[in-house]
Nucleic acid binder design. Structure first.
Lengths: 226, 226
DNA sequence: TAAGCGATATTGGGATACCAATCTGACGGG
DNA sequence: CCCGTCAGATTGGTATCCCAATATCGCTTA
């Protein structure tokens, strides 16, 4: 079962890194050549990516999932739900050393680090908080949501103050967990999620024209009801 | 793409109805004969079922996902998270006629209806509440959780009082949504989820020996930490 | 020039063929 | 009687082949 996993991982990276552009059409035959494999494992990998929301279909053909601004609003609500709950469970359950490990992660990644490192650290913080909850379904859901948000976050133009703010909010949430203050932690987590959404949508909307010019499919409007 | 979907739907039904027993080993060649199709669509269907948590693998071979009692506890926490949030959003957003439609669903299914109808109605109530939230991710997550809970719920021995109680709790939650009382609705939803978990675990644990005798793979213990 | 049309190439879905890994079970040595 | 072993059967993973549906594109025609 190795080739399918290799292709899946490879394609996943290329989608998440925007090497394959959102909205781009792919054919099984092309990927077959790209990976020097036959269509069978290619198709299996595509099916798996489809179930993760990274690929979708246009009629019969495969398309790299477009970036949907409307989805970002929904994902923020979903994240707020998940993470508020995760930090509450984390207060009950997380071991001090696991909390500290996340703290060290934050310390290692002060503003000024390269963009890709910042991106990964921002993702991992939330995934690790999900793990702290001690509930694998919650953790998995948080990880899935962060995957879906990965590409929009990559496109965000990060100002130095907004990085500072996000970093400070992470630190504050973690401190509330360490001090076993579930209400504060949940409130901060929700506020952080919605702040992040606002920054993200503002940045994407400002640059929308530019993304279109670069051939990135951005669909939806970022406001409710669509 | 039709054969794969047919096989997927067929297998899904057989798994959820316990026609295929949890823990049962399946071979692609057997299913190929069962459905008069080739291995290609069978394999695609199996992959899809794997991503839904209804199939899993033992080494290379396919196994109908066992019923994991430990999972039930985790799922209850996850459900409580999701549904508390769903009813809050429903209070903000749900149209009166959509709420009423769910009320009529409840009315149509008073205690005394056949077991399979009761099972479906109990699932659908929660799925519809998820829809009322107006957030497709929340709705999807609720539906996924209910799918994962479907088989354990089917094995539950339902006493008449416990059916009455569950029905009354559903009605109460819906009333709170209609009256736009988000705090009450959320509190009732959480309590309902945990009540349901307790009844379910108690019933399954009581009958555990019997399930084993019938060849159903029940793994885990229902308590935390495993 | 623009719209309609049809031959052709290409596509994804499915079937079949092949292989290496694994399982099974009968046999033989202890 | 038990256990190791080895040949044959079976399995999942992959490659290849076939087909109907679709897309492409040059040509014709109004």
């Amino acid at each position: 079962m190795s080739q399918m996993l290799d292709i899946h991982a490879g394609l996943r990276d290329r989608v998440l890194s925007l090497d394959l552009r959102p909205g781009e059409k792919l054919t099984e035959r092309l990927l077959e050549r790209d990976y020097g494999a036959s269509r069978t494992p290619v198709r299996a990998a595509l099916l798996k990516l489809e179930s993760e929301g990274l690929m979708c279909r246009d009629g019969r053909s495969w398309v790299v999932a477009p970036i949907d601004l409307g989805e970002i609003t929904l994902l923020a609500e979903f994240r707020a739900t998940l993470e508020a709950s995760a930090v509450r469970f984390a207060c009950e359950r997380a071991a001090a050393e696991d909390i500290d490990a996340i703290g060290e992660m934050l310390d290692r990644c002060r503003p000024g680090v390269p963009r890709d490192e910042w991106h990964k650290a921002g993702t991992d913080f939330h995934i690790e908080i999900g793990r702290l909850s001690g509930n694998s379904f919650l953790a998995r859901a948080v990880a899935d949501v962060m995957t879906r948000l990965s590409r929009p976050r990559w496109l965000e133009v990060l100002t130095e103050p907004s990085r500072e703010q996000a970093w400070a909010e992470h630190r504050r949430i973690l401190d509330s967990i360490r001090r076993n203050q579930p209400d504060a932690a949940a409130q901060q987590a929700v506020a952080h999620v919605y702040d992040t959404r606002d920054r993200l949508l503002r940045s994407l909307d400002d640059n929308r024209r530019g993304f279109r010019a670069r051939g990135l499919a951005l669909v939806g409007s970022g406001v409710r009801a669509e």
